[in-house]
Amino acid sequence: MKSIILIAGSRLLVALMTVFAVYMLLRGHNQPGGGFIGGLLAAVGFVIYAIACGTEGARQALRFRPTDIAAVGLGFALFAGVMAAFFSDDFFTGQWLFINATPQDKGIPLSSVLVFDVGVFLVVFGSVLSIVFALEEEV
């Protein structure tokens, strides 16, 4: 299907949905959201792009193979768990770093939990896209 409107619109949508997906990912720690839903949203953005420009175009826009992204994501998640070893805690214990913390305020909390969520984001993003591309190319 070649539709100028869809192609032009999908380019905008991919950017918008990716930004929104990252927002959902970061929001996820204390509010609804997180890596899984973020990854799904980001994947949907690229699925729309694939519908407009074909899977070939979507694969080029993605630059990396989707399964590679999923594998790297798994690596992130595993690393988040192993990180606890450097602080002599048990596997998968959350590690926290508070930047600019004051007694009243926790500052900017960075954690290994966030790294894990980024990993989940990438795994979901990569595996959903590889499934969708496979189905799309099959038909």
């Binding site: 594998a71 790297v72 798994l74 690596g75 595993l78 768990g81 192993v82 596997f91």
Partner: peptide, 8 residues
Amino acid sequence: ILPFATAI
């Protein structure tokens, strides 16, 4: 951990 890391 080892098989997962190896898999990646």
